[in-house]
Design a protein around this nucleic acid. Structure first.
Ligand code: MN
Ligand code: MN
Ligand code: ZN
Ligand code: ZN
Lengths: 146, 146
DNA sequence: CAACAAATGAGATGCTTTTGCATTCTGCCA
DNA sequence: TGGCAGAATGCAAAAGCATCTCATTTGTTG
């Protein structure tokens, strides 16, 4: 349960019951190689354009949503309007985001995970998901000057 | 730091550097008495209409945003499109939301708060804010049937 | 390689939130 | 208390993000 995975391929697309099309392959590859790992649909659109792939924004949204349903991709709702996507490598984690430069770092803390379960139990809830995002200034010099 | 506050009034509006207008008074009163405590701008709009106050939706958004800047109100970005607002009574807390009926409960856990600080420190971040929301099914019978 | 279903692109559309502007209201002072 | 300047409001238009429609193109399978 929740194993690792390093490389996504056309097989993953096929296994999701989707046709292996050029847009899907390119989008998956981009997520794979993406510097930051956390990108908006528009980021994907522009990065692909830079790479010479003119794929419609509507298709990007559609594909990302399909990938999400298939469990290949995770969607986050950080502050700032646009949804942010990242490849789902099977290991849950939460995020800490720099509100100055946008840098995103990941973390996983079992203690926090456990406490959430306990809190939910106390309140009679069954946990399906959770979103924890810390916002602050990263160590970057330029981000320090508040 | 972070004291309690039970009743908001025109003074709070004035102290925020805002004129005490009917829309502002009504919106603040509604948040004060609101059943659920967590309402969208449209909720506010409709509830006020029901109460016979026809205040423009644009004004509601403007006022809520101003209240937020003034620290009278907190805005949350739960899943589901609309922003959710609540009166800021000065005591930080996080939320657990039923994805079936929408019920929102609040909790505060010092252990989770502390761990976040530690994690941020490890990563060289200065924490400015955080958002933790647990999603699941509440104890309500109708919400149990997954 | 034909045939058909699935997928794509471009633009329309939907929804939430913000903004521009003419009109109305508040707070303040004479 | 009356009047004024600036602030606030309402309405409609616009903006931002995401989804949908539909004609056309592209995988996939036999
Ligand atoms: Mn991540
Ligand atoms: Mn709350
Ligand atoms: Zn930074
Ligand atoms: Zn419920």
């Amino acid at each position: 349960m929740g194993g690792k995975k390093d490389m996504m391929s056309g097989d993953d697309i096929r296994n999701a019951g989707l046709k292996v099309t050029l847009p899907r392959v390119k989008i998956l590859a981009l997520l794979e190689q993406s510097e930051q790992g956390h990108v908006s649909a528009e980021d994907v659109y522009k990065l692909l354009l830079d790479a010479g792939e003119d794929i419609g924004l509507a298709t990007i949204y559609r594909v990302l949503t399909q990938f999400e349903s298939a469990g290949l991709v995770t969607r986050h709702h950080f502050e700032g309007g646009q949804s942010v996507f990242e490849l789902d490598r099977g290991e849950h984690h939460d995020h800490i985001v720099c509100i100055k430069c946008g840098r995103v770092e990941e973390f996983f803390d079992q203690m926090i995970e456990d406490r959430q379960q306990e809190i939910a139990k106390e309140k009679g809830f069954t946990v399906e998901a959770h979103a924890l995002t810390i916002y602050g200034y990263c160590k970057n010099a330029a981000c320090r000057a508040s």
